[in-house]
Amino acid sequence: MPLELKQVQITRRGEALFAPVSLNISPGETATVMGASGCGKSTLLSAICGSLSRGFTLRGEILLKGRAINAIPMERRNIGILFQDDLLFPHMSIGSNLAFALPAGMVRHQREKKVTHALNQAGLEGFEDRDPATLSGGQRARVSLLRTLLANPGALLLDEPFSRLDQGLKGQIRAFLFAQVKKMNIPALLVTHDPGDMAEGPLIDLTTHR
């Protein structure tokens, strides 16, 4: 179930942000898009997940599981996204934050079990009722990733997810993230300006890419 970009290009007032990009990301693989700030790499991610702002135009085709998703509203695309900020919902407990991502229809008991299971697996036992504000940066990053994965996405987008973490944590979260992508066997696309963040999959440098 790969994520494919075919000649994807974004224009603003008729001007292209970068040359057309083609990419084929296999399940379990993480591709990297590199580039200096302002080169349009975050805009590319918003085009893929469907949150492109007014004024930008998308050309080319984006396919998930062989299906073109250009015209599908964001909430139906089944694509998860992680930002550099963890964006945990401050009015909900850690448990509710995670339960929010689970599909509807399960009874409460089942939901709680799934949440507990996810927390245990990430080394966050007993965090269900904690206030997000009381967690460390690394813990928050892990919860944020867990939340994205619990929605069972068909692909994962990563918008500089390590840039707010210090060096020691970075390696830890990176390893955890790539392991999860492999385990869930979904394609992932990482966007960064830091060569140290690079994943093992295909690489495109938007600054030099022609």
Partner: peptide
């Protein structure tokens, strides 16, 4: 951060 929160919520299928 309205637009980022919106993107997270919608990418979770809401």
């Amino acid at each position: 951060d309205y637009s980022a929160t919106m993107a997270v919520g919608r990418s979770l299928g809401y």
